[in-house]
């Protein structure tokens, strides 16, 4: 029985990447900011690889990294920052070299109609405006810190949220006048949130790495999915969601 399994694995590993070697279920752990684009990619992947099924677990990158290090049975990890990928390469949970598949930059997000008349980063220092930022411990907060340092603005936030989606909720409900979120989040929020570009965003460009896990239960399909994310078709979906190409 064991020999048969080893043989199958060998065949799957060494064989040419024929469509027949992929199939079955894979579980992809992906950063929360990839929710919309990866759901789309998953559907496209399933159509291109009949018999395969992609399941997603979307959450904060560091929470996912911890789950992986604790032995969560995932096949692929797509993180919102190289630091989170490092958490799993450090422990050997990922042995392949991670590939950068997308870039994300910050945008100023304001509720529809811009009630606080926010026009630039300098407005984030105004005490009378309600401001939401990500906490420094999460990637979007670290990025925000960088751009404020680059702009020389001392931000006066009213809340430091636990993830970028929580920040976005506060903006779309109109509870805050301005926030810093990723460009992709503004796009995903539809018409409820308006985005404004700012020059200092170039100081905190976020790279998104992806890699198959060393102990992926379904290694061939995991690899095929990573390749698909890096392919032209994958890039198209990601750019449509507001990411830029690496």
């Amino acid at each position: 029985m064991k020999r048969v399994l080893v043989l199958t694995l060998l065949l799957a590993g060494c064989g040419s990447p024929a469509a027949t070697s992929t199939g079955g279920d894979i579980t992809v752990f992906a950063a929360a900011s990839l929710t919309e684009s990866f759901t789309k990619l998953g559907t496209a992947f399933e159509a291109a690889h009949p018999g395969s099924k992609v399941r997603f677990s979307f959450a904060g990158s560091s929470a996912l990294a911890q789950q992986i290090n604790q032995g969560a049975p995932a096949d692929v990890f797509a993180a919102a920052a190289p630091a989170n990928m490092k958490q799993v390469t450090d422990t050997g949970a990922v042995t392949a070299t991670p590939a950068t598949f997308a870039r994300n930059t910050l945008q100023i997000a304001v509720p529809r109609g811009n009630p606080g008349r926010v026009t630039g980063l300098a407005d984030f220092a105004k005490a009378d405006l309600k401001i939401a930022l990500c906490a420094e411990q999460v990637p979007c907060g670290a990025a925000a810190k960088k751009v404020f340092e680059a702009a020389g603005v001392k931000a006066a936030p009213d809340t430091l949220e636990q993830d970028v989606k929580a920040v976005l909720t506060k903006v779309s409900l109109g509870e805050v006048d301005a926030a810093l979120v990723y460009r992709t989040d503004v796009k995903a929020a539809g018409g409820k949130v308006e985005g404004e570009d700012f020059a200092e965003a170039a100081n905190a460009v976020n790279d998104y790495p992806v890699a198959p896990l060393a102990k992926a239960p379904n290694a061939p399909t995991a690899k095929a999915f990573v390749d698909f994310v890096l392919s032209g078709r994958g890039r198209e979906v990601l750019i449509e969601a507001g990411f830029s190409a690496p």
């Binding site: 939401a132 809340t159 430091l160 949220e161 636990q162 929580a166 506060k170």
Partner: peptide, 12 residues
């Protein structure tokens, strides 16, 4: 708490 009151050291 984090959804309604947000998160700010010393306050929430």
């Amino acid at each position: 708490t984090i959804t309604f009151a947000g998160n700010f050291p010393g306050r929430t």
